[in-house]
Design a protein around this nucleic acid. Structure first.
Lengths: 250, 250
DNA sequence: TGTACATCAGTGAACGCGCGTTCACTGATGTAC
DNA sequence: TGTACATCAGTGAACGCGCGTTCACTGATGTAC
């Protein structure tokens, strides 16, 4: 699922190349974790690996390509954490699964703050993300959608209604269009097939929950909660529960 | 409210110093807006101002001090936008005021993306925020609290209840302690006096709303919504309305 | 199995760049008598 | 009002640093006959 495997890299050269490509990326990730994205320098990576900086160009054509590899890996790692939580709780009540995914994501983020910042923090100046990142980036939201779909299929999900005290705000206008388009894209997606479609109203709620979740994470990791809910565990638990209720999983 | 004024800076030297200190900061802000925080270089600022880089050290003892000044200014600018929206809508229904503050914050953020990233994006590596930032940083949350307090006093606010379909999750344990401490801090704060205290339950809801709001902003400004609700206006409006309902302003 | 040639990984030097900060200096502005 | 001294803004050169990327090269690994 993660890396594509050459059956058994034929020549020693090929084996060495695969290995070094991985080692370079791993050393880069180590430096990223220690210093953050701007602390990442090709020269430092090469130094640590005992090679000369120009040698790295045999493996990554530029610093940006190395960064891209790290970004994709980070998205995949977090996506895998989310998917794993969903898979492990298959069959459990949807609310439990939802919470499990939330917590898995937070756990990953807390354990990989700099990688989190790399993908969800301020954009890196001068860096433009290539198309290859959008697949990995959507694994997290898709994990949530998966849980919601299963809940729908099992009839566990209260139809999006009664969110605020005055009941649900209706989704209309441009927002409805965007939601419908997104819903169509999901229906056409790979994992779709014969699962129930997600109503625009629910989809909007899911996206709200998604932004809320990452808003909390960014605040926690970037130090915005220091004066208030600093050890954020209790706050996060509570908010995640509210979110579950919000998407229809009381 | 913003800057302290020398009655009428006595000597020409003093006047020049005040002015240049401001000009340096403004040029720095211009470069920040153009390139982002790591694009900010003392030498470039000096160049643009027609002086030699070492001259800046008469005004700011180091790059970090200049950065700090920009950060404080950014917090103050956004805080002022929020406070202004609250002030202008004084007397209006609380829900309207809430939405006005949300929109004012977004408007500022969209118009000042790089300044937004400076204060709400990934922490700058090697930079530690001094104490002076926490006052300005809390103006936005305090603006929300102010609106909620007024709503409480006017009896407009439905007591925090019925958030999710299954009713409000209760606030207990460590979370309750943290909320109580925060509530006390607010009661002891400057703008408090004879206004009604904010119940922990409500406070937690307010903080959830706060994180949600900035979660959306970060996603919008940092490009995470590109595939879904890209022109985010409709989505933001909808979510802000949901948030108002969530804190008890249907 | 052995030789001749092609491929490719890694080297080392260099290019060209920009940065933050320090320091001894000069000349103008301010102050005290 | 005028002079003597102190304060301070701005200069220019320098220190010391690190970076991404290019390029001609060498020597080892792989391939074809």
């Amino acid at each position: 699922m993660a890396d594509t495997w050459q059956p058994a890299s034929r020549t020693a050269r090929e084996r060495a190349r695969v290995e070094l490509t991985r080692e370079i990326k791993e050393e880069a990730r180590r430096q990223l974790a220690a210093t953050g994205a701007d602390g990442l320098s090709l020269r430092a990576v090469a130094r640590q690996l005992g090679m000369v900086s120009s040698a790295l160009y045999r493996y990554y054509p530029s610093r940006d390509d190395l960064l891209t590899a790290l970004i994709i890996d980070a998205y995949n790692a977090m996506g895998e954490a989310a998917e794993h939580a969903a898979a492990v709780t298959q069959g459990a009540p949807a609310r439990e699964r939802w919470l499990a995914v939330c917590h898995a994501i937070r756990a990953w983020a807390v354990a990989h703050r700099h990688e989190y910042a790399l993908i969800y923090g301020s954009p890196i100046p001068g860096y433009r993300a290539p198309q290859d990142t959008i697949g990995p980036a959507s694994r997290v939201p898709l994990a949530f959608v998966g849980v919601l779909r299963a809940a729908l299929a099992a009839g566990e999900l209260k139809p999006a209604e009664g969110g605020g005290p005055a009941g649900s705000r209706t989704v209309e206008g441009l927002l409805a269009d965007q939601a419908a388009a997104l819903s169509d894209a999901l229906a056409a997606g790979p994992a779709a097939a014969s699962v129930p479609p997600v109503a625009p109203e629910l989809l909007v709620r899911a996206v709200i929950a998604w932004t809320q979740l990452f808003g909390m994470l960014s605040f926690e990791l970037f130090g915005q909660l220091v004066g208030s809910f600093d050890p954020a565990d209790a706050f996060f638990d509570h908010a995640a529960a509210q979110l579950a209720a919000f998407v229809g999983l009381p």
